[in-house]
Computed example of a mutant assay.
Amino acid sequence: MLDSAVATTLRLGSRGSPLALAQSRMVAEALAAAGFGTSLATVETAGDRDRARPLVALGGKAVWTKELDQALLDGKIDAAVHSLKDVETKLPDGLVLAAVLPRADPRDRLVGAGTLAALAPGARVGTSSPRRAAQLAFRRPDVEAVLLRGNVATRLARVEDGTVAATFLAAAGLDRLGIAAGTPLDPADWLPAASQGIVGIAARADADAVLAALAGIDDPETHCAARAERAVLAGIGGSCRTAIAVHASATGTGMLRLRAELYSPDGAERVDAVQTGDANDPTALGAAVAEALLAAATPAIRASLG
């Protein structure tokens, strides 16, 4: 365990995918600039071991984080690096979201077609995301969303070999891997997932020296947006099956604009909400947007919330 008197080296934990390792290097570089050394341990997760079945069959978002959470609780690592959109809204007891890096491009990119309109009728579009599948069905009910899992390279290869006509990938992930592919989708029409583009770092709640070190690399504006977006998820009480899109953005000094969309699983029905509130209380803003979504939700949407 890191000694509070000599908190100079932090043991980072990460999945072993190319994107996860790239994000861990970003955290290590930020910590190095703040005067801290790091070491890295890679941890294989359930999602890494089973790349075929849908995430809902594996237990949802926890498939990307459970083993890293346990490594933290067991004291094997000091901090765990995550794509924050993959982190469950409620962390296990004893863990906290200690810091986030500045947000990268939050948009989705469409790979394989220049626009959604350019997809041919009946085209097969690969995704494992209930959000993306529902958004696609709402806008293009004449195309077919098919299950496609795997890392970035695998999904790009399935487009290249014609297994699917197109797929969606996070712009931030592509940028971090140095891959120029796809067309960005405007958030005004295609909202991203909550916390998309944000690297989050979890730590033990009682590890004071680690928390102090991570506080030095935390980006307050991004953390504020993340709290608002994650509060929407918490407020609707959804699951890994819930098709929800959320994005927060600063609109001026001390103000935050928060927009969210909630879909039925088949994409046939959609409700949305947008509010602007005090950036000093992002959780309250997120809760208010969640309440507005639930008030407008149709029976089919409510049924998807479990």
Results as ranks from 00 to 15, higher is better:
V232K: 03
L97A: 03
A33N: 08
V27H: 08
H247V: 09
A228N: 06
M26H: 12
V199W: 09
G200D: 00
L305E: 07
A225M: 11
I179V: 15
A180T: 13
S39H: 02
R149D: 00
G112K: 08
T65P: 03
A153V: 02
D281V: 11
L262R: 11
L116I: 02
V146G: 07
V159D: 12
G173W: 01
L101Q: 08
V271Q: 03
R49D: 05
D208G: 09
A287K: 15
V87T: 12
C224S: 13
S249C: 12
K76R: 15
L305S: 03
L156R: 01
R241C: 15
A300Y: 05
R155D: 09
H82V: 04
I77V: 14
A99E: 06
A171W: 01
P282T: 10
R124L: 08
G162I: 15
A225T: 12
I301L: 06
T89L: 08
D278E: 14
R124A: 10
L293S: 05
L262G: 04
G173K: 03
A303H: 13
R302G: 04
A296T: 06
A205V: 15
D281L: 11
G16W: 09
L10W: 00
E144L: 10
R107G: 05
G182Q: 05
A288C: 02
G277F: 10
S249L: 15
Y263M: 11
F168Q: 07
D108L: 12
A113S: 13
A279H: 01
L305I: 14
V289R: 10
I179F: 11
G306L: 13
A46I: 08
A5Q: 07
A212N: 03
L148V: 11
A98D: 03
S304G: 05
D281W: 05
T251N: 04
E160P: 01
S304L: 01
L84T: 04
I77N: 02
T222N: 00
D272F: 09
R11M: 02
R270N: 04
P141N: 11
A194C: 08
P18I: 11
S128N: 10
T183W: 12
G114Y: 05
V100P: 00
T115M: 12
E221G: 12
